[in-house]
């Protein structure tokens, strides 16, 4: 099942990139997609039946909007720090603990953290994220955990788990 989904996604991606719906191109795309499927599909989509729940897609859309908004804010934040003459930075690496379990969810969360204001994931060890933060706003672990993870964790939990 997971192989089929991976194959179809690969083929759609190929057709979008080459943008040519002739028979020869579809055959070439199928071949390329098949090779990728055989090599990589076993690493992805552990629970592939989750792919077909409409509620997950809805939360995915909500998450996408939250994410794009956070991303735009991140850019103004960094631009402000870079351009202001005093350069208000107070960098450091903090440890935050997540309640997400699956690998894919952790990957999504780490990427979200990297794109949000002033934070960049350095490493994930077990359930702990090590996050480089350009301006540490609080010394209290509970406060900064909810500042860094709070926005995304609940959506990702609804989408993936």
């Amino acid at each position: 099942m997971r192989y089929v989904v991976f194959f179809i996604l690969g083929l759609i991606f190929w057709l979008a990139v080459t943008f040519d719906i002739s028979a020869a191109n579809i055959v070439a795309g199928s071949a390329a997609s098949l090779v990728c499927t055989l090599i990589f599909a076993r690493f992805y989509f552990k629970g592939v039946q989750k792919f077909f729940h409409p509620a997950r897609w809805f939360w995915g859309l909500v998450y996408l909007m939250v994410f794009v908004w956070a991303c735009i804010k991140a850019n103004f934040d960094v631009a402000f720090r870079v351009l202001s003459p005093a350069m208000p930075i107070k960098p450091g690496i903090v440890k935050v603990r997540t309640s997400l379990k699956s690998e894919f969810a952790k990957m999504l969360l780490a990427n979200s953290i990297t794109m949000t204001p002033g934070t960049l994931t350095v490493d994930i060890i077990g359930d702990d994220f090590y996050v480089h933060w350009i301006y540490i706003r609080s010394a209290n672990p509970e406060v900064y955990t909810s500042m860094i993870l709070g926005r995304f964790e609940k959506y990702i939990k609804k989408i993936v788990e």
Partner: peptide
């Protein structure tokens, strides 16, 4: 300027 390093 760094104030904290939990990764050390």
């Amino acid at each position: 300027k760094s104030v904290k390093d939990d990764y050390k």
